[in-house]
């Protein structure tokens, strides 16, 4: 059941280009599962107009957290909020991550802020391996919580942190057929992963958790469609946001 909840900001932390908000959201927290997202009204006025979608980054008791990359008007408006302020949150939205296939331990692949939904997911798994990539170290999300919940492998395009290269360079050391793969990140990362997966002798069991431009988040506006290989379209919000990698064209 989707709930609109006015939530108090308990903590607002800015680290580099990332904002983390911990929200008192007892109703949403009661049912939010890893892989689902919330749609947040970033201001009180009409500009920005639409809510902004964020994967549930963490959940504890009555609280949920979101991790936000500060990149536009909506996210900057959120950064100006303080602890004690109230924001309107709609959720939980979308479908949770499917469980890892028995005998195929999870392997998480994240690009930048795409790591956000994986912390809550990882907490319910036994310290999964996670490949986390970014263009440079400044675009990597805060690492502490991921380090405690995951076995972290970092790559940056410029080598400023972790190994030099992309997540695919790290991924090459893994036997994909032995894992259930979950990926979340920018479009370019999905495109590169699709190409890599297509070249495998056996199609890997891999899921893409997408971030798209979204109107409502609950299936009414039909604004967040994603092309499918059969020529059809999927709605990111209600069909996803997690899809089998071969179900969507990116």
């Amino acid at each position: 059941m989707i709930i609109k909840e006015y939530t108090e900001i308990l903590e607002s932390t800015i680290a580099g280009t990332y904002l983390t908000l911990r929200l008192n959201a007892p109703k949403i927290a009661a049912s939010a599962l890893p892989g689902q997202f919330v749609n947040i009204r970033t201001g009180d006025g009409f500009d920005p107009l639409l809510r902004r979608p964020f994967g549930v980054y963490d959940r504890s008791g009555d609280t949920i957290s979101v991790m936000v990359l500060l990149r536009g008007r909506g996210t900057r408006a959120l950064a100006e909020k303080n602890a004690g302020d109230t924001i309107s949150v709609l959720g939980p939205l979308g479908n949770p991550f499917p469980a890892p296939h028995p005998g195929k331990p999870p392997l998480l692949i994240a690009g930048g802020v795409g790591a956000a939904p994986f912390l809550y997911f990882a907490r319910g798994l036994s310290k999964p391996k996670m490949i986390l990539g970014a263009r440079d170290r400044l675009l990597l999300p805060p690492l502490e919580s991921f380090m405690s919940a995951c076995e972290l492998m970092i790559s940056t395009d410029d080598g400023s942190k972790g190994s030099r290269g992309t997540v695919i360079d790290v991924l090459k050391q893994f036997d994909l057929s032995a894992h259930t793969v979950y990926a979340c990140g920018p479009k370019g990362m999905f495109a590169a992963l699709s190409e890599y997966f297509s070249a495998q002798p056996v199609s890997p069991l891999a899921y893409f958790s997408l971030e798209t431009y979204m109107g409502c988040g609950f299936g009414a506006c039909k604004g967040c469609s994603v092309p499918a290989p059969d020529g059809g379209l999927k709605l990111c919000c209600t069909d996803g946001p997690t899809f089998l990698w071969s179900e969507v064209m990116l």
Partner: peptide, 14 residues
């Protein structure tokens, strides 16, 4: 329906 993109926010509008 149309291929994406399908929506774009503008100041106070869509």
């Amino acid at each position: 329906g149309n291929q994406p993109p399908r929506i774009l926010e503008t100041p106070c509008g869509l």
